[in-house]
Design a protein around this nucleic acid. Structure first.
Length: 809
RNA sequence: GCCCAGGUGGUGGAAUUGGUAUACACGCCAGUCUUAGGAACUGGUAGAGUAAUCUGUGGAGGUUCGAGUCCUCUCCUGGGCACCA
């Protein structure tokens, strides 16, 4: 027999599988039940495939192969999230067109993925930067636009001076650009938004009710932490909104609070620096110079600077008094930049006794702190928990929960305020002043204004005659062929929108395209969508918890609302692979020089060993550190499987113990794959092969069952041995074995004998031994007697097949 | 600060419902085959002790015949959110 040489057999089978595409392609006409298993598609970066990609793709490949062998018609596609900044930045630096760079990277990724033996359906490959694809990204923009879900407005937006573009809130991390870490500044600009906030709560749609972004999470199988992160991002809070009258005027100041129960403890009110009321009250403000100075200082500060300020600052609007509607008392008014203009009403009631921020501010400016909820020590710190109300007029004595209800009812009765729900989630800013993205299909006409491009004119092609150096405006502005067009409505000369779309727009609908990737008339036919969607299993990094997953859910909900599809959640089951760190425990990065290149591992150990190693590292969802030394263990395992070939005999039936272990293994491996516990599935197969190795001969049928189980993990090796031992068809056409429970019973088991819960003896007994039988043996056992002699036996606990515990006084 | 995961040998990790703690693998130690070598093979490997035995799943309590697993408190690590009123 030859030596196991991965490099030879892996190439051989990759070629053979490519020639037999039915092994990996989804079948359009099949009576089998469908299963859609999807990876978060990669951005084809110049760095090539990362070991983290391999972890993700190996897991879904194992699962897809497992599902196929269990009789499912599996859709397991791959494509490229190809628009985006790195290709453009590379172009700026080196002058290479992003299109060329991207295609080169895609080729490299393709080669790498194929060298790993992944069973993707390559016939459905998509590329978001191709006109055939972004035509439909543009169609989606128009779909949202026509239904009032895409709109343009002047807004304070996050601007990155280094990337020269605006960013979505989700792309700003700690006040800095997620990509280049440059500090983000605020700018007032006309930008395009998608109305994602329309879908926070449930609503009626053309194809039945559409579950909102919050409630929709209830019935999908996602990691709980991801659901919670999404809910936190949406940030729903329930409270009340009510008015303060400005003393001596008709004017009112509206505040939002979740703690209306503390309203009798209000000792002042604070406005955000951007609050319009400050300007309106200017003539009455006695210290206007001081206020104006504060406003201009606040305006200069970035959000980050505001957040980082150690001490809260503010200025009283002297000469203004406003009236607390609950008790009629006059309180003073401040402006302070710790109040956010974008949230709630941009004005907050300050209750220093029961809010930490107000407490800090009140201490600094020596303002009154009035306790209205009992339970804390407000001399020391704010008491922010619920409690029993005091100093609160007719509401005194109520607990906070009841008080909130009663006080909101009172506000509504008096017509001063109402119950109000607020959210942190804002509409999604989708326009980017960059080149390498899908152009926004809107035209500006002097007569007709903002006009949607006609659908038959899509795609609006990205021009090639541009200089993509960023200037703060989209590079498309400088392409005459691009922006000089005729108005689709009146035919007059008009100007095309020069912004492109955020790449997250492209990835918000790609899972639909895989159902019908070549369709030229629709983004996907209704028939194909209903055949393949929703996605049954979705896998990808946890870094997409709020961005991509929320946007994709929004697109799905919008499609359902307007009758295009009949489901409102795109991904029924979601799992994240944990990040793979370098062996030093740090993140793999070029600058640290600790990046592991999968190609090198494949060259040294083979793709099968790499796949197995990554699956064996630990629980899929957990973070783990790379350790090249450990790969050898998986190589040895594969080598053992290879060598056991020589032990097989055609015409024998296996040893009873081996059969029992085999069926236990079938059960465990099947359960473990179904639950994405690949590490323990592999260790169970190791146990089996270790037993096989010790035998003189192995029944061929037993060995074949192991090969079938191993095939999804180590496809090349399994397929090669399968052929070696005389099989004509691919091992992937085999049916997944089922465990026979009756064969899983051991004849003998080790029975633990405990005295007072401590193990004193282990006895080999028949697996069906009864309590009475074992009791006698156990009590007479000398090792046990040492601990029971002369003692009263209080009771005996018997766990069939496991242990007997003798409890003595 | 808030939310979410986690803390088990030298290392990665295992332990369905509370029932043998450390499966499987790496490493290490000893040996075997070999001219030699190991990415080969065999055996050993939680700690203490000559041993019987005792101790051991971040720490302190508790429930239980029995706790890595359940409860209370606490410490530490990683991730997410963060002036959201």
């Amino acid at each position: 027999m030859n030596k196991y040489t991965p490099s030879e057999i892996e190439k051989k089978w990759q070629d053979k599988w490519a020639a037999q595409s039915s092994l990996s392609e989804a079948q359009e006409n099949s009576k089998k039940e469908k299963f859609y298993c999807l990876d978060m598609f990669p951005y084809p970066s110049a760095a090539g495939l990362h070991v983290g990609h391999v972890e993700n793709y190996a897991a879904t490949d194992i699962y897809s192969r497992f599902k196929r062998m269990n009789g499912f018609n599996v859709l397991h596609p791959i494509g490229w999230d190809a628009f985006g900044l790195p290709a453009e930045n590379f172009a700026i630096k080196n002058g290479t067109h992003p299109n060329a760079t991207t295609h080169q990277n895609i080729q490299n990724f393709t080669k790498q993925i194929k060298s790993l033996g992944m069973s993707y359906d390559w016939s459905r490959e998509i590329d978001t930067s191709s006109p055939e694809y972004y035509k439909w990204t543009q169609w989606f923009f128009l779909f949202l636009y026509k239904n009032g879900l895409a709109y343009k407005k002047k807004a304070k937006v996050n601007w990155c001076d280094s990337c020269m573009t605006v960013l979505a809130n989700e792309q700003v991390v700690d006040g800095a650009c997620e990509r280049c870490k440059n500090q983000v500044v605020q700018k007032d600009l006309e930008q395009w938004f998608f109305k994602i906030t329309d879908f926070i709560e449930d609503q009626a749609g053309e194809n039945g009710d559409v579950k909102g972004l919050i409630n929709g999470l209830e019935n999908i199988d996602w990691p709980n932490s991801t659901k919670i992160a999404q809910k936190n991002w949406i940030g729903k809070s329930q409270g009340a909104e009510f008015d303060f009258a400005v003393a001596g005027t008709e004017q009112k100041i509206k505040v939002y609070t979740t703690r209306v129960d503390t309203a009798f403890g209000i000792t002042y009110v604070v406005l955000a620096p951007e609050h319009p009321m400050i300007g309106e009250l200017q003539s009455q403000i006695l210290n206007w110079d001081e206020v104006a100075e504060y406003l201009s200082q606040a305006k200069k500060k970035s959000d980050l600077e505001r957040m980082e300020a150690k001490e809260k600052t503010g200025v009283e609007l002297k000469g203004i008094k406003i009236i607390n509607p609950f008790n009629g008392q006059e309180v003073s008014l401040f402006v302070a930049d710790y109040v956010l203009s974008q949230y709630g009403t941009g004005a907050v009631m300050a209750v220093p006794a029961h809010d930490e921020r107000d407490f800090e501010f009140a201490k600094k400016y020596d303002l009154e702190i009035l306790e209205v909820v009992a339970g804390g020590n407000i001399l020391e710190m704010a008491f922010t928990l619920d409690g029993i109300l005091k100093n609160s007029g007719e509401f005194s004595g109520l607990n906070s929960l009841d008080a909130r209800e009663k006080m909101i009812a009172w506000l509504e009765k008096e017509g001063i305020g109402k119950r109000k729900i607020n959210y942190k989630l804002r509409d999604w800013l989708v326009s980017r002043q960059r080149y390498w993205g899908a152009p926004i299909p809107i035209i500006y006409c002097e007569d007709c204004g903002e006009v949607a491009e006609k659908e038959e004119n899509l795609p609006v092609l990205l021009p090639t005659d541009v200089d993509f150096k960023p200037t703060g405006e989209s590079p498309l502005v400088y392409s005459k062929t691009f922006h000089e067009v005729n108005c689709p409505k009146c035919g007059k000369k008009a100007r095309r929108e020069s912004d492109t779309m955020d790449t997250f727009v492209c990835s918000s609908w790609y899972y639909l395209r895989f159902a019908d990737p070549k369709n030229e008339k629709e983004f996907a036919s209704k028939e194909n969508i209903s055949k393949w969607l929703p996605v049954d299993m979705y896998m990808g990094g946890a870094e997409h918890t709020v961005l991509h997953l929320l946007y994709a859910r929004f697109f799905t909900k919008a499609l359902k609302k307007f009758g295009y599809i009949n489901f409102d959640e795109p991904f029924l089951k979601l799992r994240h692979q944990g990040m793979i760190m370098a062996s030093d425990g740090r993140k793999m990065s070029k600058s640290l020089g600790n990046v592991v290149n999968p190609d090198e591992v494949v060259a040294e150990f083979g793709a099968d060993a790499l796949r197995l190693y990554e699956m064996f590292m630990g629980p899929l969802e957990e973070m783990k550190a790379w350790n090249t030394q450990n790969i050898i263990g998986l190589s040895r395992f594969l080598d053992k499987v290879w060598k056991v070939q020589t032990l097989i005999k055609d015409d024998i039936s296996g040893d009873k113990k081996i059969i029992t272990l085999l069926h236990k293994t079938i059960k465990k491996v099947s359960d473990d794959i179904e639950n994405f516990r690949f590490n323990t599935a592999i260790s169970q197969m190791m146990i089996l092969i270790n037993s096989f190795e010790k035998e003189i001969q192995i029944a061929k049928t037993d060995y074949e069952l192991l090969l079938v189980m191993l095939a999804p993990f180590a496809p090349h090796l399994a397929e090669e041995i399968w052929e070696n031992i005389g099989n004509k068809n691919s091992i992937f056409l085999e049916k997944w074995p089922s465990a026979d429970e009756s064969l899983m019973q051991d004849d003998e088991v080790e029975m633990v004998v405990q005295v007072n819960g401590k193990v004193r003896e282990r006895l080999m007994v028949a697996s069906d031994v009864t309590e009475d039988e074992i009791k006698e043996t156990a009590l007479e056992n000398p090792k046990v007697k040492v601990f029971t002699d002369g003692k009263e036996i209080k009771k005996i606990i018997f766990v069939p097949g496991k242990l007997i515990n003798i409890v003595v006084a």
